[in-house]
Simulated assay, not measured.
Amino acid sequence: MKALLISILIMATTSTLTSFTMPKGDAVQEVKQALEGQIEAWNKGDLEKAMTFYWNSPEMLWISKSGTEKGYQEVYDMFLQDFTDRSKMGVYTYEPLHIEQVSKEAVYFVFRWKIELDGKRLMGGVSSQVWKKVNGRWVVTSEHAS
């Protein structure tokens, strides 16, 4: 009962916030820096480097309106097919909406994103990512992009 009351209080409090406040903590800051590194690589047209921020495992999961892809190589191949011409990758920007450390080695990050090319929006939406510390570095193990 006490846990339920605390959960309701937290939801009521957070639903009234008008702006996003970044939580403090090393893991949260490290994941935010990792996402910045991924976006920097993307904006340079370096898909290979941008992909290094995903977990190189057959268990890596990508979820979109088209369905799911499982496996690093399958997701990488999907990106290679969609962005054969690196000049069409555009400029990726994001706005954090929610981030929380869910365990010692896992962070949940939700953000609004968009990709623009020549000032025109190519795509965008909201993504939720699960970042885990694997072999000493933070990588996305699951992403839902919509």
Rank of each mutant, 00 (worst) to 15 (best):
K2N: 10
Q81T: 07
L97K: 11
G119F: 08
L9Y: 11
M1K: 08
L80W: 06
D85F: 06
I115A: 07
A50P: 02
S103W: 04
Y108V: 14
Q81Y: 12
G136V: 02
P58Q: 03
M78Q: 06
E69F: 11
M89L: 04
A50S: 13
T84N: 11
L61H: 05
T21M: 08
K88Y: 07
S57I: 09
V126C: 07
W42T: 01
N56E: 15
E69P: 03
M22R: 15
H98P: 00
E69H: 10
F109C: 01
G25R: 04
E100A: 07
L47N: 05
T16K: 14
L97V: 07
M51L: 07
Y94G: 02
M123R: 12
M123I: 15
F79E: 02
N56F: 04
Y92H: 12
Y94T: 08
S15M: 09
F20W: 13
F111Y: 15
D77H: 04
N135V: 06
I39N: 13
Q29K: 12
E116R: 04
W62L: 00
D85S: 08
Q101C: 03
G124I: 00
L61V: 03
S87Y: 06
A34Q: 15
S64C: 10
F83W: 11
I8S: 09
G136W: 05
S57F: 01
S64L: 03
V31G: 05
K104H: 09
K49N: 12
I99D: 01
Y108R: 13
K104S: 11
N43C: 04
E48D: 14
T141W: 00
I115Q: 05
V91A: 08
F111M: 11
T141C: 04
T21N: 10
M123S: 13
Y54N: 00
E59R: 12
P96S: 08
D77V: 02
P58D: 11
I63C: 07
W55F: 05
T141R: 02
L5S: 12
K132Q: 15
D82R: 02
L35I: 03
H144Q: 14
G71L: 00
V28C: 06
F111C: 07
T93R: 04
W62Q: 01
K65M: 12
G71E: 00
L97N: 03
I8D: 07
F53W: 09
H98S: 10
E100T: 08
S103H: 04
S146T: 10
T14I: 15
K24M: 14
I39R: 14
N43D: 07
S127G: 05
K65H: 14
D85E: 12
S7F: 15
F111L: 10
D46Q: 10
W42L: 03
V130H: 09
Q73C: 00
V102E: 05
I6Q: 09
L117M: 10
V134D: 03
S57D: 12
V134W: 02
Q73I: 01
T16G: 09
A3K: 15
E40L: 15
F20E: 05
A27K: 01
K44Q: 15
Q33W: 14
G71N: 03
E105H: 09
T18L: 11
V139Q: 07
V130Y: 10
